[in-house]
Simulated assay, not measured.
Amino acid sequence: MSKQSILGRITQLAKANINALLDQAEDPQLMLDQMVRDYTNSIAEAESAVAQTIGNLRLTEQDYREDVDAANDWGRKALAASGKADELRAAGNAVDADKFDNLAKIALVRQLSSENEAKAAQPTIASQTQVVEQLKKGLDAMRGKLSELTAKRDELTARSKTAAAQQQVHDALKSIDLLDPTSEISRFEDKIRREEAKVLGQQELQASSLDAQFEGLEDLGREGEVEARLAALKAGGTTAITSGS
């Protein structure tokens, strides 16, 4: 995976609009679960790629420092060889002086080579450093997006459970309304009132029957007294109202 594709993928994921994606989802909770898994996997892959990119940068930086150190070392060797050649030439030893001058030249060639390699590495190090910084920022953004996704998923899950519970209560209340137990109670109450009225009617009817019987007894008593008084009249006696027992 190239640095460009790594950076492009991280940027795309980090800029993903969660709300817009959720609006298009048939099942937002399932989509969030999948997005959390995808982000987690993408972050793991990106971390590995970024770590490799950082490793390559550190190797390039290490090579650069080695080239700089080598250039400085060859510079010191060239200076030493040139100084020795000057001493020998001053002492009249031109042959050995030329040998040390040649060594100084070789050292200078090596110095130039190391310097050129160090200079060539500088633009690469600068560009890789910029890419690494962008990748790190992208990873931080992805981690933040993952936290946002996880929080959104947890919120949606809680809201879904609450909505389900509210729907259950609503369905239960709706069932109660349809059954209307109060109407059953009212019918049962009416039945009891009718039974109570029937009992009252029976009691009233029974009371009327007893009154009629007692009235019959009173009529018989009056007829007996009338017959007694009639017999007394026929016998020539008189009737009188008496008091007491």
Rank of each mutant, 00 (worst) to 15 (best):
D63R: 14
S186K: 13
A207T: 13
P123D: 08
Q166M: 08
D23C: 03
V68H: 04
E61N: 10
E45M: 05
A46C: 07
P28Y: 01
D23H: 00
E26K: 03
E225V: 10
T60I: 06
Q34S: 10
V109Q: 05
T150L: 06
A85M: 03
A121E: 02
Q206S: 14
G224T: 14
P181F: 11
L205V: 12
K152I: 00
A91P: 01
V50Y: 01
A14I: 02
A16K: 07
I176K: 15
K105Y: 01
I10Q: 02
A121H: 04
G144T: 10
E218L: 09
Q206P: 04
E215A: 07
L217V: 06
S160Y: 00
L32M: 06
L173V: 11
Q122M: 13
I125F: 03
L179E: 13
N56Y: 01
A25R: 02
E225L: 12
L59R: 11
I192E: 05
N116G: 01
G244S: 09
K3F: 03
P28C: 03
S48K: 14
K105S: 04
R187G: 04
E45Y: 02
L88H: 05
A85Q: 08
A164D: 07
L32E: 05
R89N: 07
A141C: 06
F214A: 14
T150E: 11
S113H: 05
R37N: 12
K84I: 01
A126S: 11
V226Y: 03
S127C: 05
K145R: 08
T157H: 04
S113A: 00
S42K: 07
D101F: 02
L233D: 09
P123K: 09
S245Y: 11
K191M: 15
I10C: 02
A80W: 00
L200W: 11
Q24I: 09
Y64C: 04
A94Q: 12
N19M: 03
A141L: 07
